[in-house]
């Protein structure tokens, strides 16, 4: 999409499994609520049973997109590259967003590990500029630590806002 080659590095492949799991955790309550509401509607005879079943099924299927194929699409389209002068992030399957953050503008950098991420040995790298934070999600622990250290080394600390 641009004249500059897209960023080179991909996220850790285990990210797909992680996202699938968190997609499942998100979809389960939605499915339960949908079934309960549908059952309730049938009980008070507001809608016929097939219609209620269809609504519950559609809602459950929509929530299940978070398990498949969304994580795969997300992973396939997430790219990043930590260059000498800039951090280059590209993500999104439907809407592609490419963000470039100059090293000189980065104020500090974190690695973050949630409870689920820890199970998979994954970590996120979060970059902070004066205009907000950007995240590289789901890198292997070792890779994330190296990325964090590299960014911290390259980021210019003397810059005034």
């Amino acid at each position: 999409m641009s004249t500059k080659p897209p960023p080179r590095d991909r996220l850790d492949p285990r990210a797909r499994t992680l996202w699938r799991l968190s997609g499942l955790l998100g979809a389960l309550p939605v499915a339960l609520v949908a079934v309960a509401v549908a059952a309730g509607l049938v009980r008070i005879a507001l809608v016929p049973t097939p219609v209620a079943a269809a609504i519950a099924l559609v809602v459950t299927l929509a929530a299940a997109v978070g398990i498949w194929p969304y994580p795969d699409l997300l992973w396939r389209h997430w790219r990043y590259e930590i260059g000498e002068a800039e951090v280059d992030l590209q993500r999104g399957w439907w809407t592609t967003t490419r963000t470039l953050i100059p090293m000189a503008r980065i104020q500090h950098v974190d690695t973050r590990r949630g409870p689920l991420q820890r199970r998979f040995g994954l970590a996120s790298v979060v970059l902070y500029t004066a205009a907000g934070a950007s995240e590289i999600p789901a890198l292997a622990d070792q890779v994330a630590a190296e990325a964090r250290d590299r960014i911290a080394r390259l980021a210019n600390v003397n810059d005034d806002l």
Partner: peptide, 8 residues
Amino acid sequence: QRRSLVQN
């Protein structure tokens, strides 16, 4: 602080 390019 950052530039971005968005395309659907």
